[in-house]
Structures are given as C-alpha cells and as structure tokens.
Design a protein around this nucleic acid. Structure first.
Lengths: 165, 165
DNA sequence: GCACACTCTCTCGACGTCAAGACAGTCGAC
DNA sequence: GTCGACTGTCTTGACGTCGAGAGAGTGTGC
C-alpha cells in the first residue's frame, strides 16, 4: 500500500530529477511515523489523565527499580530533553504528588527524583495501556518482520546513543 | 551494538516480567530516532538560516511544482500540524518574503499559499544539505537494508496516511 | 430558493520546550 | 591547601504548538 512518503518521493523525482532522494524513503518515514505515534499516545494516555511527557519521566523512574529514583541528569539522557525542560517537568510532577525531590547525599550540587507510590501506580497502569495500543499498530507485521525492523533501527540509533551527541 | 532501547527493554523485563514489552523494540526506537533526527536537522538547517518548520512548509510547496502553490489545508496534511499552527507559520514566512497569500479564485473561503522566488531558492539549497546529512546517518546500512527498512516502515505508516485519522 | 450541515481559515489563551547563562559544588594538578 | 576547569541543576525570556471555537462561505436535499 502507498503512503504519504511514496507520494513525496515521487514528487521530488519529478521536480528535482537531478537529486538522489532515496534517503527520504527511510528517514521521512521515521519522522512522520513518530508524529503519528505522538498523537496516538496522547489519546491513549488521556484515559489515564497523563500527558506523554509525564509518562516519559514516570516510567524512566519506574524502570530504575526500587527505590525508584534517578538524578535529573540521568533523566535527561533517557528522555532527550534539555535541562531547563526537565527542571520544569519535575516541578510539575512534584506539584501533582507523583514524584518528590531529595538532596543527593553523595553530591551536594545534586538532587534525586523519587517516584511516590501514586506515581508508581500511574506508571504501571499507563504502560499497560500503551503496550496494548502499540500491539495494535504493529499488528501489520509478523513477528519475524518486527524483529527485523527492530534490528535495522538499532543500527541507526546506536551511534546517537553511544557516541555522546 | 547496544542502544538505549536495549537497556530500556532489559529494565522493563527485570521490573515487569509479567508484561510483554516487545512492541517497544520497534516503536520506542522510532520515537527516539525521530528526536535525534530533529536535533540533527536543526543543526544542518542553521547553516542556511532556516528552522525545520520553515523547511517543511517551503519544501511542501516546492514539491507541488510550478506555480508552487497549495492551500493551507493541503499543507496541513503534509506537515501533520494543526490549522492554528499553519496560519502562524504562513504569517511568519510571508513576513520574511518566502511565501505570499493569494485569494483562491474558485472558493472565496479559501487561500492559496505561493512560494516566492527566494523561497524556492532556499528550499532547493536546504534540501541538498539535508540529503547530504541523511546519507551520512544511513551510511550504517547497505542499499538492500535501506530498502528493506523503507518497506517495513511503509507498512506502519500507510494505515495512518490512508485511513483518515 | 432556502435551510442546514459541512468546510476552510483564522483567532485566542494556555502550555511546554529550548538556548543561554547563572550559580554552587567538586576534583585534579600543583 | 588552593586555584581553575568542570559538572549538575536551575532561572529566564522568547518562541512555536495545540485545542477550542468563531466566522465566512459552500452546496445538497427538499
């Protein structure tokens, strides 16, 4: 089945036959799919009264395991936002009682962000909802295709995630 | 090579062994990769004094072919933003002299957005820059792998692009 | 012809993000 | 010890996006 990127690529080949636009076949699909996923996630989370950004932070802490705490800096690398944004997010989550700030005992510049019990429950509930939705989206693909796709994507993400950039 | 999503999935399997988190292997990579690409694009465009959102609009018009004009509504579906955002974008691009608004002769509610000569030049220059950068990112993959990846992604994007939603 | 549902664009206010820089605390070289 | 470069977090102001809804215009069924 044709998608918007097929139309986009065909248009470029007509307008700029001198250029090789093959990279768009992969990377424009990644960008567009991510936007579609954002919208879908926003909808799925609204049932749990959570915003996507809240989910991102709460689940990062949940994944850390007991006692469910990370520094703001560690949260940055997991969520790919800037430090100012993370300060703001932590403020708002703390105001809602889903996380709390504690001084880092081993570094007085530092802070630890800890999930409250309610924050943990919300993280668990919304993860289940997200997985259900994602399974529906991936229903298009066989198990083997999903695994193939994951492996190819890993080759693209690994350099970003490992070389500090 | 391992990436951040491998670590994320391993953490979930440890913390929530009762859940099947396999969907994250694909979709978390898509979301994270898109964020990395956004950052890289922002950097690449800054050489041409363009923002990513400006690029998106100008190139949509450029692709339309002579006389390089589309309605705001057509631009919405191509760029995946809301109508309020598009009005704002067109305003700013018009103020910079890269596009102009014309009344739609066949529908008096409507408007046509047309690329100026300068807008067209900027679109052409920045596309070349973007493709160069994207080729570097995709250097990890063979031609066959890129084509495989594009085909798998198409299966995921096509439902979003074709079923209105 | 007329009413009514629909389409298209724009307006408005709230919100989240970013970039740049400030500030306190840390740590190695000497 | 102490100086200086570095690190981790927070502050600030500008900016772009969103959602909801308003207003003008269209066109179909009757």
């Amino acid at each position: 089945m044709e998608d918007e990127v097929d139309r986009l690529v065909a248009a470029w080949r007509r307008e700029r036959p001198d250029l090789d636009v093959e990279p768009l076949e992969v990377l424009s699909r990644v960008s567009r799919l991510a936007r579609h996923l954002d919208r879908a996630r926003r909808l799925a989370f609204s049932e749990h009264h959570l915003e996507p950004w809240e989910f991102d932070v709460l689940t990062a802490l949940r994944r850390a395991g007991s006692p469910y705490q990370l520094s703001p800096g560690q949260l940055l690398t997991q969520t790919l936002v800037t430090s100012g944004t993370m300060t703001n997010r932590i403020d708002r989550l703390a105001k809602k009682g889903l996380v709390e700030r504690l001084p880092d005992p081993s570094d007085r510049r530092g802070v630890l962000v800890r999930l409250t019990d309610e924050g943990r429950d919300r993280a668990d509930q919304s993860l289940a909802g997200l997985l259900e939705q994602e399974r529906a989206i991936l229903g298009e693909l066989s198990r083997a295709q999903r695994s193939e796709l994951a492996a190819l994507l890993r080759q693209l993400t690994a350099p970003f995630d490992n070389i500090p950039g």
